[in-house]
Design a protein around this nucleic acid. Structure first.
Lengths: 201, 201
DNA sequence: TGTACATCAGTGAACGCGCGTTCACTGATGTAC
DNA sequence: TGTACATCAGTGAACGCGCGTTCACTGATGTAC
């Protein structure tokens, strides 16, 4: 009985996963506010109605797909920061920029949630935890750099600035992907230098 | 004849203005992707159909309202920068933050255009001109500060970072408007200090 | 000065489409007796 | 071992609503004769 019900749970999870995977793939192809339930169902090879056996509504599915993707992405960044040498701020900002550039769909979704105004409490809490963990990581880095005062302020500053770089410099009619990435990296490096000069005082 | 046709032109402009004003007011009350043509018509006291005598479609009206608002806002910032004393970077970033906080609806619209991916060429060009003028103003400021090298890079860095501060720190369930503004200003000041320390080297 | 006609701001109702969501149903598998 | 019944994944079509846009029309003002 127990093993059977466990098996069923597993199957159910597997089906959920198929749907979330499909959602993620759709988000990669177009702005997330243009992704429809029908799109996702088609991609997953199922009927739209079936999605509603696993998620109460569209928002729940979107939030789950979004959180999974962002979590993975952040984990990767944390690992990088963790293994970076003392005071390797230039490498850390480079990694940050590179990750967000590679996962632009999540960045856009994140911004959208931030800017929409009507965030649901739950999602907000989850995002907050992620943000705080990122800030903690930055704190650790600044400690290694021997910046003594206002460490948390510096982490906030760095975090916001990096977000701003990704938000501000993006594709437009006369620039291709690699040019955008290069520009972002150049500006991020410049930012890193500011912190280094401050630390060196 | 000539005066008459001129008068008619004026009337037409006045009616356009009424519509754009109404749009602006609506944008101030809710996220701009929830503002409908019916809302705007109602606010302007006219029939929805009449809007289409002055604008070919919704996007044109939105772009016009957006550009007008952003233009006014940017002009105000330029004036501030222009009249600020030598190297008053702290005051400039403070003004920047304050303006964008006060005009959050334009900030959100701007971000949305940036992030949407499908920008129309025209709007993009207009935004680009605004951005470049802002950068020129920052250049002038950094020159006053006697930062010798890579002035344009610094302007890009400052611009992106300020955008990031406004984008990242915003209202949420447990923070009210003034707290948000204070936090933004604190972080922006910290940013300014980084530039100052760099300039002082 | 009066009459026929053109012009054009302005309107409320209707069209049409996209899309989230639900409905009524099918068919396979498991369960009780 | 066979039969009646429950459960539940899964479906295609339909519902309902919101909203951009258009339609067919009105009524005022100007113009030509």
């Amino acid at each position: 009985m127990n093993t059977l019900s466990k098996l069923k749970e597993k199957e159910k999870d597997a089906r959920r996963k198929i749907i979330v995977d499909a959602a993620e793939k759709e988000f990669a192809t177009k702005p997330f506010n243009r992704v429809t339930m029908r799109d996702i169902a088609k991609r997953a090879g199922i009927s739209p109605a079936l999605i509603y056996r696993h998620f109460p509504d569209q928002q729940s599915l979107f939030v789950e797909a979004f959180c999974r993707g962002v979590n993975e992405m952040f984990e990767e960044i944390y690992r990088k920061i963790d293994t970076s040498s003392d005071g390797a701020i230039r490498q850390v900002v480079g990694d940050f920029i590179e990750f967000f550039t590679r996962n632009d769909q999540y960045f856009r979704m994140m911004m959208n949630f931030f800017l929409s105004g009507s965030v649901d409490e739950d999602l907000f809490a989850k995002l907050n935890i992620l943000e705080r963990r990122m800030l903690d990581n930055f704190d650790a880095m600044f400690t290694k750099m021997r910046i003594a005062s206002n460490i948390r302020h510096h982490s906030h500053t760095l975090f916001a600035s990096l977000i701003g770089i990704v938000a501000t410099f993006r594709n437009h009619p006369h620039k291709n992907d690699t040019e955008v990435l290069q520009h972002r990296e150049r500006i991020a490096e410049n930012l890193a230098r500011l912190f280094m000069s401050f630390a060196g005082e």
